Amino acid sequence: MKDFSDLSERELMALAIALEEEDSRIYDEFAEGLRENYPDTAKVFAAMAEEENGHRHRLLDLFRTRFGNHIPLIRRQDVRGFVERKPVWLSRPLGLDTVRKQAELMEAETKRFYIRAARQSQDVAIRQLLGDLAAEERRHEATAERLEAKYVPEGVREKEHDAERRLFLLQIVQPGLAGLMDGSVSTLAPLFAAAFATHSTSETFLVGLAAAVGAGISMGFAEALSDNGSLTGRGSPWLRGAVCGLMTTLGGIGHTLPYLIPDFWTATAVAIAVVLAELAVIAWIRNRYMDTPLLSAAFQVVVGGLLVFGTGILIGSS
């Protein structure tokens, strides 16, 4: 993967073309998926797809003038900092709220991309076009509102969620939550392996503490090195890494602390109760902040956590 700040102007333009093409096709999919149950709202997204296609043509014309006919293959997944897009457009039937949330995130992310790309470009014509597109993306929400006013009756409209807030959740809060979940699950096996191998609360506590701190350091560095913040505006990578690392450590400490209790079986019983509570909280977090259905989140987390937990006990008892 490349850092956004390392992209050349040719690569910036190629990436912008790819983004506009992807956004246009996603809006087309939204329109197709909504046409049967929400035909008026489908017209909104069809019009938005046409607008994004117009942006792509303007970018193509300037690219051809500046760099020729060959467009290098560079995609959003090749550049650090873009939010992962869940393929909600593959689901049928599509829900209005899900589609609008996704559209808001797309608009907010594309706007931020153009702002950063315009600042980075030194070519006057490229900088002007990217700046114009950034301004148009700022007005995109207003455009959507006008389209809704034209096509969607007042009674159909729902209150929109704040796109920047959701983008913040995806880019700032979720890495911390991912660290918390990783720390809670990944430290189960070494902790309970040590517990059933030694039957010593003091030694088990030290193993659990080492596993939690080690996982925190690993996750912290992984988060810090994943994105330098030049595109996403997520701030200092070291600050994000510290937050992710601390949350990972916190996730592992919860079921380690019971082994400060001198009696082994009492400590183990308390630790198991803490583990069950942690798995329930993780399932709720995945449902609340990561849009995972509650039953699916509970199944994934509980089954995965119990497998790790059981692995630790089997290894420690062998």
Rank of each mutant, 00 (worst) to 15 (best):
F4M: 08
E9Y: 06
L12V: 07
R25D: 03
F30N: 04
F30M: 08
F30A: 10
Y38P: 09
Y38R: 13
D40P: 14
D40K: 08
A42D: 10
M48H: 11
E52S: 01
R58D: 06
D61W: 01
D61K: 14
G68Y: 12
P72H: 05
L73E: 11
R75D: 12
R85H: 12
K86H: 02
V88S: 01
V99Y: 11
V99Q: 03
T110M: 15
T110Q: 12
I115Y: 10
Q120W: 13
Q120S: 14
Q120P: 02
D123A: 08
I126H: 02
E137G: 01
R138W: 02
K150V: 09
Y151N: 00
A163R: 05
R166E: 15
L169T: 12
L169W: 15
L170Y: 12
Q174H: 05
Q174L: 14
A193G: 07
F196C: 04
S200G: 10
S202P: 09
S202C: 01
T204R: 07
G208R: 01
L209W: 04
A210I: 06
G214D: 02
F221C: 03
S226Q: 00
G235Y: 07
L246E: 04
T248A: 11
G254T: 05
T256K: 11
Y259L: 01
T266S: 06
T266D: 03
A269V: 09
A271F: 06
A280L: 05
I285V: 12
S296N: 14
S296I: 04
F309W: 08
